[in-house]
């Protein structure tokens, strides 16, 4: 494929990520300013965004550093908070397994929620495929990465100028972004071959159930240490969603599960 065609797919990936990049801006600024309000070195904040590159884990780590938690607690909490990414990797590996190791290295580094959310549907609907999809993936990752670094620096500067910036509730932007990622799943048209409208609606039900189970259990499990509740709640959501999906598929599609 030509350079021009690669370029086009690269841009496609970046464009598909734009809403989430916009949603990430306040979140990145908040990270920089929060690091300043905790009296951390600007270089520490910059290095963490550049090297670790994991939004929600970076916030959790700041809180732990502020609370004087030992190194092993910070690292193991990061592990648990980011464990969800292995599930994204498991889903995407089939599309990128033929690529040389240096490609897989870069794509692995760039595997964040937003890029997964932007790229996975593009593979699903056929707008990209195994032969060109990694350029879209790269475009999504690099544009998100650039935003994250710039916003960290802006946040550091802004945090010095307006010390109360970290109390403005900018982390709500992450909540809104994640809701923007979630809602399309509730429309997921599973079983397109179904002619009955009711059956199509019914196939969305497992996603609603996964949402409800994960949300309620994460509320009930907030007391668990090191964000373990998050992991348990997420696994419960996946389990309930999957089992219900199997049951419904068996009823409506006559498929042997």
């Amino acid at each position: 494929m030509s350079f021009r065609a690669h370029n086009k797919v690269f841009l496609q990936g970046a464009v598909a990520s734009t809403p989430m990049i916009v949603g990430g801006i306040p979140f990145g600024i908040l990270f920089g300013s929060l690091a300043m309000s905790y009296d951390l070195s600007p270089w520490f904040a910059v290095a963490m965004s550049a090297i670790v590159f994991a939004g929600s884990a970076q916030f959790v780590a700041l809180g732990l550093i502020y609370a004087d938690a030992p190194l092993w607690v910070i690292v193991s909490t990061t592990f648990i908070v980011n464990l969800r990414h292995i599930l994204y990797a498991a889903d995407l590996v089939k599309f990128i397994k033929h690529l040389p190791i240096k490609w897989r290295f870069i794509l692995g580094f760039g595997l964040v929620d937003e890029t997964y959310a932007a790229i996975r549907p593009m593979y699903g609907n056929g707008s990209i495929n195994e032969s060109n999809g990694h350029y879209a993936y790269l475009g999504s990752f690099l544009s998100f990465y650039l935003m994250w670094q710039m916003c960290t620096v802006i946040g550091i500067v802004a945090g010095e100028l307006f010390p109360s910036l970290s109390e403005w509730g900018m982390e709500f932007a992450m909540v809104a972004t994640f809701i923007g990622i979630i809602t399309p799943y509730l429309h997921a048209r599973d079983g397109k071959q179904l002619t009955q409208k009711t059956a199509r609606y019914l196939m969305r039900f497992p996603y609603w159930l996964a949402l409800a189970v994960a949300s309620i259990s994460s509320l009930l499990l907030t007391e668990l240490p090191n964000n373990l509740g998050l992991l348990v709640a997420a696994l419960l959501g996946v389990l309930v969603g999957f089992v219900t999906h199997k049951l419904l598929a068996r009823i409506w599609l006559g498929e042997v599960a």
């Binding site: 498991a90 990622i181 949402l211 949300s215 994460s218 509320l219 959501g237 389990l239």
Partner: peptide
């Protein structure tokens, strides 16, 4: 990547990962 072979059911369950993980993060 070449050696990773995931069973079919695992692949089907993965569809529910993003919605579950993200809900669990933001619900509290």
């Amino acid at each position: 990547a070449h050696k990773v072979v995931l069973p079919q059911w695992f692949d089907e369950a993965l569809v529910f990962v993003p919605i579950s993980v993200l809900s669990a993060i933001i619900a509290p």
